Computed example of a mutant assay.
Amino acid sequence: MGNETPAMTVWVVYARPHQAWRRQVDLPAGATVAQALAASGFTQAFPDVDPWQAGVGVFGRRVQPGHSLSGGDRVEIYRALVFDPMESRRRRAAHRARKSPGARPPRTPKAPR
Protein backbone atom coordinates (compact mmCIF):
# COMPACT_ATOMS: atom_id res chain seq x y z
CA MET A 1 0.00 0.00 0.00
CA GLY A 2 2.38 2.71 -1.20
CA ASN A 3 1.74 6.08 -2.73
CA GLU A 4 1.48 4.67 -6.23
CA THR A 5 -0.74 6.55 -8.63
CA PRO A 6 -3.06 4.23 -10.56
CA ALA A 7 -1.94 3.80 -14.16
CA MET A 8 -4.07 4.27 -17.24
CA THR A 9 -3.58 3.21 -20.83
CA VAL A 10 -4.10 5.55 -23.80
CA TRP A 11 -3.39 5.28 -27.53
CA VAL A 12 -1.46 7.86 -29.53
CA VAL A 13 -2.21 7.68 -33.27
CA TYR A 14 -1.02 9.47 -36.39
CA ALA A 15 -2.59 8.64 -39.75
CA ARG A 16 -0.19 8.93 -42.66
CA PRO A 17 -1.36 8.68 -46.28
CA HIS A 18 -0.73 4.92 -46.62
CA GLN A 19 -0.19 3.73 -43.08
CA ALA A 20 -1.24 4.51 -39.52
CA TRP A 21 1.28 4.90 -36.70
CA ARG A 22 -0.01 4.06 -33.22
CA ARG A 23 1.46 3.46 -29.81
CA GLN A 24 -0.12 2.24 -26.61
CA VAL A 25 1.16 4.23 -23.63
CA ASP A 26 0.79 3.58 -19.89
CA LEU A 27 0.64 6.81 -17.90
CA PRO A 28 -0.19 7.87 -14.34
CA ALA A 29 -3.77 9.01 -13.71
CA GLY A 30 -4.28 12.67 -14.57
CA ALA A 31 -1.63 12.70 -17.30
CA THR A 32 -1.95 15.28 -20.07
CA VAL A 33 -1.95 15.08 -23.84
CA ALA A 34 1.56 16.57 -23.93
CA GLN A 35 2.81 13.84 -21.57
CA ALA A 36 1.19 11.16 -23.74
CA LEU A 37 2.90 12.53 -26.85
CA ALA A 38 6.26 12.60 -25.08
CA ALA A 39 5.85 9.05 -23.75
CA SER A 40 4.78 7.69 -27.15
CA GLY A 41 8.05 8.59 -28.88
CA PHE A 42 6.24 10.52 -31.60
CA THR A 43 8.89 13.24 -31.90
CA GLN A 44 11.62 10.60 -32.31
CA ALA A 45 9.60 8.72 -34.95
CA PHE A 46 8.66 11.91 -36.85
CA PRO A 47 11.26 14.60 -36.06
CA ASP A 48 10.09 16.79 -38.96
CA VAL A 49 6.41 16.88 -37.84
CA ASP A 50 5.14 19.47 -35.35
CA PRO A 51 2.07 17.76 -33.83
CA TRP A 52 0.55 21.07 -32.72
CA GLN A 53 0.71 22.71 -36.16
CA ALA A 54 -2.38 20.97 -37.58
CA GLY A 55 -3.74 20.12 -34.15
CA VAL A 56 -4.10 17.29 -31.69
CA GLY A 57 -7.36 15.84 -30.46
CA VAL A 58 -8.98 13.17 -28.35
CA PHE A 59 -11.61 11.10 -30.17
CA GLY A 60 -12.06 13.77 -32.87
CA ARG A 61 -12.27 16.80 -30.57
CA ARG A 62 -9.37 19.23 -30.71
CA VAL A 63 -7.60 19.73 -27.35
CA GLN A 64 -4.76 21.74 -25.83
CA PRO A 65 -1.49 20.24 -24.53
CA GLY A 66 -2.65 20.47 -20.90
CA HIS A 67 -5.88 18.52 -21.47
CA SER A 68 -6.20 15.72 -18.87
CA LEU A 69 -6.67 12.24 -20.25
CA SER A 70 -8.77 9.32 -19.06
CA GLY A 71 -8.00 5.64 -19.43
CA GLY A 72 -8.80 4.34 -22.91
CA ASP A 73 -8.56 7.75 -24.62
CA ARG A 74 -7.20 7.96 -28.17
CA VAL A 75 -4.89 10.93 -28.75
CA GLU A 76 -4.99 11.81 -32.45
CA ILE A 77 -2.31 13.85 -34.22
CA TYR A 78 -3.84 15.59 -37.21
CA ARG A 79 -2.26 16.37 -40.58
CA ALA A 80 -2.78 19.50 -42.65
CA LEU A 81 -5.44 19.24 -45.33
CA VAL A 82 -4.09 18.61 -48.81
CA PHE A 83 -7.16 20.15 -50.48
CA ASP A 84 -10.07 22.43 -49.63
CA PRO A 85 -13.09 20.21 -48.79
CA MET A 86 -15.61 22.71 -50.19
CA GLU A 87 -13.76 23.02 -53.50
CA SER A 88 -13.57 19.24 -53.76
CA ARG A 89 -17.33 19.00 -53.16
CA ARG A 90 -18.02 21.60 -55.87
CA ARG A 91 -15.89 19.67 -58.36
CA ARG A 92 -17.66 16.38 -57.59
CA ALA A 93 -21.07 18.03 -57.98
CA ALA A 94 -20.09 19.60 -61.29
CA HIS A 95 -18.72 16.27 -62.50
CA ARG A 96 -21.97 14.47 -61.59
CA ALA A 97 -24.01 17.19 -63.30
CA ARG A 98 -22.04 16.74 -66.54
CA LYS A 99 -22.46 12.95 -66.46
CA SER A 100 -26.20 12.72 -65.77
CA PRO A 101 -28.50 13.24 -68.80
CA GLY A 102 -31.06 16.01 -68.50
CA ALA A 103 -29.30 17.58 -65.56
CA ARG A 104 -29.97 21.21 -64.82
CA PRO A 105 -27.20 23.64 -65.63
CA PRO A 106 -25.30 24.95 -62.62
CA ARG A 107 -26.83 27.95 -60.92
CA THR A 108 -25.27 31.30 -61.47
CA PRO A 109 -24.91 33.69 -58.56
CA LYS A 110 -27.41 36.53 -58.31
CA ALA A 111 -26.22 39.95 -59.31
CA PRO A 112 -26.03 42.54 -56.53
CA ARG A 113 -28.95 44.96 -56.47
Rank of each mutant, 00 (worst) to 15 (best):
A20L: 15
R62W: 07
W52K: 05
R61I: 02
H95I: 02
V63E: 13
S40T: 04
A80E: 13
S40W: 08
T9D: 12
E87R: 10
R61M: 01
V56D: 11
Q64L: 10
R104L: 13
A34Q: 13
H67S: 04
R113W: 07
G41Y: 09
G30V: 03
R92I: 11
R89C: 02
P105Q: 14
P28R: 09
A15Q: 12
S88P: 00
V12A: 08
D73I: 00
V13G: 06
E4A: 15
Q53G: 05
G72Y: 01
S100L: 12
P105Y: 12
V33Y: 08
P17D: 09
P106H: 13
W11Y: 12
R23E: 15
M1E: 14
P109W: 02
M1R: 13
A54Y: 08
V10M: 11
P112M: 05
K99C: 06
W21I: 05
A103N: 07
V10N: 09
A103L: 02
D48H: 13
R89H: 09
V49T: 14
R62H: 06
E76N: 04
F59D: 06
A45V: 00
K99E: 15
R92P: 01
A54F: 03
G55D: 08
L81A: 11
A93T: 09
Q44H: 12
P109D: 06
Y78K: 06
P112I: 03
V56K: 13
V25F: 02
V49Y: 11
V75S: 07
A39D: 07
A54K: 10
A20E: 14
P17S: 07
G72C: 06
Q35T: 03
A39Y: 07
M1N: 10
